[in-house]
Simulated assay, not measured.
Amino acid sequence: MSTLWVLGAGQLGAMLKQAGTPLGLDIRPVDIETDEVLPLAQDDIVTAEREEWPETAATKQLATHKNFVNLDTFPQLADRLTQKQWLDRLELATAPWFPVEEDTDADYAYQTLGERVLMKRRRGGYDGKGQYWLKQTENTAIPDDWKGLAIAEQAINFDEEVSLVGVRGKNGEKYFYPLTLNLHINGILYASISPLKRLDQYQSKAEAMLGKLMDALDYVGVMAMECFRVGDELLINELAPRVHNSGHWSQAGASICQFENHVRAVTNLPLAPVQVKNQSMMVNLIGVDVDYQWLNIKALELYWYKKEVRPGRKVGHLNFCSADISVLKQGLTELTLPAPYPEALEWLEKNL
């Protein structure tokens, strides 16, 4: 079996390696800043744990390899302008939007999209960064350094946020995980829960939307689609051409986790339908120190990324999985975390 190289050596790369190890695969995440000469063979395969990357000695080697899967897709989805253009081209529902040009002013934004408009940097800016609100009641203006570098979206008064993770093989075969309900606080994902029976009614619609996009891009591997649910409608908010934070619950709660599915797809191994084991939930660990006493909590699995702890930084996550809802609820009561976690834990308990 060829070596699978992962552009990026963060937590997603580490979890891809972990998922591929039982399959006997040689998976090597690569620090994008390394200047060592990588021993890439002609029949090796390259994937990525991130949408975009700087030009370094390492990324040059990987990004010029003939077997870099989805290489042409990354720049199209990493740029929010071309991502939105793809959604419009495929007639997939998303928030009304327009590109912010050099001559765009706030009055045009309010006239076009309403009194509340969210600007997003075209590149980067995840976890609540790279966003700027225009509010007509506050006479907000567009800063000069946002012009030509952003898109503007209509503010959506959504009922809730959901995401769908799917996988597509080289032969076009597709499988999907159940919809996941997500809670963001200050733009950062704090908690997820899946599956939920009440979300079943939206599953086929979500699968058709993500499947249409993956087919159009001839995409291979795992892709995530974050959506706003507004009544019975789904509006696509963001796309991620990679394994995704909101799919982490699958490590405990599915027969094949999102990481193994991605590895299987890009190495052309057989895919299989996902079997959900039990009720799952995930708590992101953001700017908090590890506490190994968490391991005393029933149905809990800890993933610690071995990163320096800093405010707002994702440093790990907790997965819970059990057929007994009372066990999950008890686990939430035993989990002691600082603000704003009480809000997230209460949200999980309410949605179980």
Score class of each variant (00 low, 15 high):
residue 7 L to K: 01
residue 165 V to C: 07
residue 153 E to P: 08
residue 109 A to H: 04
residue 251 Q to S: 12
residue 214 M to I: 05
residue 196 L to Y: 03
residue 134 L to A: 05
residue 295 L to W: 00
residue 151 I to Q: 05
residue 109 A to R: 04
residue 50 R to Q: 13
residue 153 E to M: 08
residue 169 G to F: 09
residue 318 L to F: 06
residue 301 E to Y: 10
residue 351 N to D: 08
residue 331 G to Q: 03
residue 167 V to M: 03
residue 268 N to K: 09
residue 162 V to E: 00
residue 109 A to I: 08
residue 169 G to M: 13
residue 35 D to P: 00
residue 350 K to N: 13
residue 126 Y to G: 00
residue 69 V to D: 00
residue 344 A to H: 07
residue 55 E to Y: 10
residue 178 P to M: 05
residue 90 L to R: 06
residue 88 D to M: 02
residue 348 L to C: 11
residue 114 G to D: 14
residue 119 M to K: 00
residue 86 W to S: 05
residue 268 N to M: 12
residue 221 G to Y: 09
residue 322 S to I: 11
residue 108 Y to E: 06
residue 22 P to E: 08
residue 34 T to C: 06
residue 243 V to S: 01
residue 118 L to W: 11
residue 135 K to A: 01
residue 26 D to V: 04
residue 20 G to D: 02
residue 16 L to N: 03
residue 139 N to V: 09
residue 259 F to E: 01
residue 55 E to V: 15
residue 234 L to R: 08
residue 57 A to P: 10
residue 330 Q to F: 11
residue 188 I to K: 11
residue 307 K to H: 13
residue 216 A to K: 06
residue 54 P to W: 11
residue 238 E to Y: 05
residue 342 P to K: 04
residue 293 Q to C: 11
residue 326 S to Y: 11
residue 278 N to P: 00
residue 305 Y to A: 08
residue 87 L to R: 02
residue 274 V to E: 01
residue 67 N to V: 02
residue 113 L to G: 06
residue 168 R to M: 15
residue 100 V to L: 12
residue 254 A to N: 06
residue 88 D to E: 14
residue 107 D to K: 12
residue 242 R to E: 04
residue 211 G to V: 04
residue 203 Q to S: 11
residue 214 M to T: 07
residue 61 Q to C: 11
residue 309 V to Y: 03
residue 46 V to N: 01
residue 194 S to L: 04
residue 128 G to I: 11
residue 178 P to N: 12
residue 139 N to I: 10
residue 189 L to N: 01
residue 50 R to F: 12
residue 228 F to N: 05
residue 83 Q to D: 10
residue 344 A to S: 14
residue 328 L to G: 08
residue 340 P to G: 08
residue 123 R to Q: 15
residue 216 A to C: 13
residue 279 Q to I: 07
residue 180 T to V: 15
residue 248 H to F: 13
residue 13 G to E: 08
residue 152 A to S: 12
residue 250 S to V: 07
residue 67 N to K: 12
residue 20 G to T: 04
residue 84 K to P: 02
residue 11 Q to M: 13
residue 215 D to M: 09
residue 57 A to W: 10
residue 49 E to R: 07
residue 219 Y to M: 06
residue 29 P to Y: 04
residue 119 M to H: 03
residue 319 N to W: 03
residue 258 Q to F: 07
residue 205 K to A: 09
residue 78 A to Y: 04
residue 252 A to Q: 02
residue 326 S to Q: 14
residue 3 T to L: 01
residue 314 K to C: 08
residue 162 V to P: 00
residue 152 A to Q: 03
residue 319 N to H: 04
residue 15 M to F: 09
residue 168 R to F: 13
residue 99 P to M: 02
residue 188 I to F: 02
residue 30 V to Q: 02
residue 191 A to D: 07
residue 102 E to M: 14
residue 166 G to S: 06
residue 313 R to I: 01
residue 133 W to D: 03
residue 23 L to N: 13
residue 24 G to C: 10
residue 305 Y to C: 06
residue 39 P to W: 06
residue 213 L to T: 07
residue 119 M to L: 15
residue 249 W to H: 03
residue 133 W to A: 14
residue 210 L to V: 08
residue 304 W to N: 10
residue 28 R to V: 11
residue 119 M to T: 01
residue 310 R to I: 00
residue 148 G to C: 13
residue 98 F to Q: 09
residue 331 G to I: 05
residue 267 T to M: 15
residue 322 S to V: 10
residue 139 N to Y: 13
residue 276 V to D: 06
residue 269 L to G: 04
residue 74 F to H: 12
residue 244 H to E: 10
residue 159 D to W: 04
residue 79 D to I: 04
residue 87 L to C: 06
residue 76 Q to P: 03
residue 23 L to Y: 10
residue 266 V to N: 02
residue 164 L to G: 00
